[in-house]
Design a protein around this nucleic acid. Structure first.
Length: 542
DNA sequence: TTAGGGTTAG
């Protein structure tokens, strides 16, 4: 019979917890408790706390906390730190802060645990405030503290604060850590300054998958999609190690104006490297194909996946909705439920979007109701905007307006944009004026409301009001961005703006266009002249 | 006991 001591119990427990067998681990902890409080040491608590860091097990953290107080360990720094970490990981920020507040002795880890815990829970502002408070005190930050506060700057898009931290790190001479460099690049690109991010990237002595992914995403988020893809291609050609995370990041860059051919090439890279079973990669592929217009290929990737998660289903539902196949989107939702996959808030956005485009208003309202009542998902303004869009597209403008008036929160610009868009489709200038005014209040620098309202007036032939709206826009905001069309031929993307004759084959293109137009008229189609802005005669409008 | 990047809608 071996002699058991506290250490062997602790090792036993931590073994089960490491393997993810939380229930057995907890079972052994209970047996240890039954032996009496004398058997517990600090490590018994920190071991338990470090494992139960998911929301479902937040009760364990609370139980341990009670025991800690009961035994009188609450002023032990290591135990307090572990409690803080555990509470933040479970999402119980209030309790984490309470423990922090009650601790008499605080070391770097204590401060860093709270600062990074706040970041993990998206409370970036509080995190930076605490970082400032810490810098006034006697405990010095370490590189993990800086790392966390840089992440807070990323979340807040706080360029000024980010630069300050960069300055401190430079003075300390510790900015040349790869993890710090990645966080700096991320901060700069999230703050919209790719140039600074690139400077950090170039000055870095070494690179790894993470830092490459950060700069790639930085390009993409700042509208340098081509650069992002080219960067990836360059890395692959140079034979540099890439990982599935980097691949899913590059797949996320693809959209309507990127080349499907390049996407297929990346797909072949994925197959060669054996990344096909990674869910992030597969989901990225479904989305890439769907956005580049190849729905069939999306379906293929989706059906080949062995373990589809909720994002796979959401992505596929959205793909059908995007391609105008609303009924297939709704069928897929049924299949998803039959497979026992829980819908998420994004599932409902896709479903509402699908209903909106096929005019299934009642079905859509049913989904909206079931989201809150059955699935206990609280709607975000995006959901409200989707409902408004759905009602509005169906011509139920008054219903849309009263829906907005009944909202429990202040409607934001997405909601007003949806209403204004619907007014524009149905040519309702009165409600359009109302929606545009609200939208201008919500987003005074956006040209969108003016343009949409001007379009509505045009369609009604109300030229004077149209002119007034345009004048108001010119006083208030910068010019509207030019609309571009494009086509991909053999991996080259050709783009066009209105009245564009810069293409080498412009003459032929316009000839074909004229030919198509004649066919259209012959077949009996009438051009839609409602949304032409300028006051022109009938021929010119066509 | 604190630990850098990635997929879904609009």
């Amino acid at each position: 019979m071996p002699i058991r001591d506290t250490v062997s119990w602790n090792i036993m427990i931590s073994g089960f917890l490491r393997d993810g067998d939380f229930d057995t681990g907890f079972g052994y902890f209970k047996r240890l408790l039954e032996l009496g409080f004398d058997w517990l040491d600090q490590a018994s608590f920190t071991t338990m706390l470090s494992a139960y860091d998911i929301q479902e097990y937040s009760f364990v953290t609370k139980i341990i906390h009670c025991l800690v107080v009961l035994i009188g360990y609450e002023q032990e720094v290591t135990v307090g730190n572990a409690l803080i970490t555990s509470y933040f990981k479970c999402g119980s920020c209030g309790l984490g802060r309470q423990v922090f507040g009650e601790m008499r002795e605080r070391n770097v880890i204590t401060w860093t645990a709270v600062i990074s815990g706040l970041v993990q829970n998206q409370l970036y502002d509080d995190s930076l405030k605490l970082f400032a408070e810490m810098r006034c005190g006697s405990v010095n930050p370490n590189f993990l503290t800086y790392l966390s506060s840089l992440m807070a700057c990323s979340g807040l898009q706080a360029l000024r604060e980010g630069r300050q931290i960069h300055g401190i790190l430079w003075k300390l001479g510790s900015q040349s850590d790869l993890r710090i460099e990645s966080a700096l690049m991320d901060m700069y690109s999230k703050c919209g300054s790719v140039e600074d991010a690139w400077r950090v990237f170039e000055s870095a002595e070494e690179l790894d998958e993470v830092s490459m992914t950060v700069i790639l995403v930085g390009f993409a988020q700042n509208k340098f999609e081509d650069e992002a893809i080219q960067f990836f291609v360059k890395m692959v050609k140079a034979g540099i190690e890439i990982d599935p995370n980097m691949v899913s990041a590059v797949l996320g860059v693809f959209g309507v104006d990127t080349s499907l051919g390049l996407g297929k090439q990346i797909h072949s890279v994925i197959v060669k490297r054996g990344f096909t079973s990674n869910p992030f990669v597969s989901n990225g592929l479904i989305n890439m194909y769907s956005k580049c217009g190849d729905l069939k290929e999306s379906i293929k990737v989706f059906s080949r996946m062995s373990d589809k998660n909720s994002i796979s289903w959401n992505t596929m539902i959205a793909a059908f909705a995007r391609h105008g196949n609303g009924s297939r989107a709704l069928e897929l939702y049924k299949e998803m439920r039959l497979e026992g996959i829980k819908p998420t808030d994004v599932t409902f956005l896709s479903l509402l979007h699908a209903c909106s485009h096929v005019g299934l208003v009642e079905k859509g309202m049913e989904f909206f109701k079931s989201m809150t009542e059955v699935h206990k998902i609280s709607p975000r303004t995006e959901h409200y905007a989707c409902v408004v869009d759905m009602l509005g597209r169906a011509g139920l403008l008054n219903e849309a307006k009263s829906f907005i008036e009944g909202l429990p929160v202040k409607p934001d610009l997405l909601v007003w944009q949806a209403l204004l868009g619907a007014c524009s489709i149905h040519g309702d200038s009165e409600m359009g004026k109302y929606a545009a005014d609200q939208l201008i209040l919500a987003a005074p620098n956006s040209p969108a409301p003016y343009i949409l309202l001007a379009n509505i007036y045009s369609s009604k032939g109300r030229w004077r009001e149209r002119a007034r709206t345009i004048r108001r826009m010119k006083e208030m905001v910068v010019d509207k961005e030019t609309g571009i069309s494009w086509i991909e031929i053999e991996n080259a993307v050709h783009s066009f703006v209105v009245d564009d004759r810069s293409h080498p084959n412009a003459e032929i293109i316009y000839e074909v266009l004229a030919e198509l137009f004649r066919h259209m008229i012959d077949e009996g189609y009438q051009p839609d002249k409602r949304f032409i802005l300028h006051y022109l005669d009938q021929n010119e409008k066509e």
